[in-house]
Amino acid sequence: MKLYSKISAIIFSVIIMSVTFSERLSAQNYLARQLSFADKLFSEELYFEAITEYKRLMFFDKDKIHDFRCNFNIGLCYKYGGFYDNAIVYFKQAELSTIIDEDIFQSRIQVARCNILRKTTSVALSILNDLEHETRFADKKEDIYYWRGWALMVADDWENASRSFYYIDPEHPLKLLCDNVEGNKYSVTFAKVISYILPGSGQFYSGNYLSGFMSLGWNLWLGFLTVNSFVEDRIFDGLVIGNLLWLRFYRGNVQNAENFVLQENINIANNAYKFLQNNFTGEKP
């Protein structure tokens, strides 16, 4: 009788427990299935459908167990689709839906990476600065330096980008790339100064020889006409030719030199960006 009572009590408890928890357990089970379905779409790069299923999961996940993962993955979907503004919204929501430091860090880094991609690099740098000053992320310095380097590269500040990669590794490949770009770039100030001294020399400096010769020729000829007018006492002619023609070409020569150098620098930076996009195998924003 005693054994019978014990067994009956155990069985009764099991029934009560199963009735109580079965619904909850099965709810978790179907949410897990929904999550794996959404993850499958995500891994198959069906981002539009994946977003729908993650959103559906969040809608039915009353206990908000999967909120971080869903928001984070929706952010990734939008990011991969090029919708950076939407991606940032979801990464921020992901950050708010977790208390785990690693998750918070990853969410914020993703926000910074989206800002790099949409070229709002000042925002990216501000986020990275904030992360750097938080003591709980002290062991994440390398990540912060890495993405700061990327932000600075996109902002065309190769010198500081190089410095940022240097903190990770003095021989970091991206540091070497930044140094290379910085070394190849032309100096705008130098081009302007030599153009003031000898018209056309700024264009020679940036490799635009024909433009340099043209500029030199115009300035010599118009300079001669101006001086000649003054020598022949045609003061008004001298003033008009000097102001309207010679100064226009002299000023144009300096501006031209500046524009050529800027264009050459853009070409050098673009070549580096092409390399980063097509040949660089490390992590990209």
């Binding site: 029934i15 199963s18 009735v19 079965s22 619904e23 709810a27 089970n29 179907y30 299935r33 929904q34």
Partner: peptide, 15 residues
């Protein structure tokens, strides 16, 4: 009691 609850999991997913 238990079997329907196990079945409920699949049903809820479809739901």
């Amino acid at each position: 009691v238990i079997l329907p609850s196990l079945h409920y999991s699949q049903q809820s997913f479809n739901d």
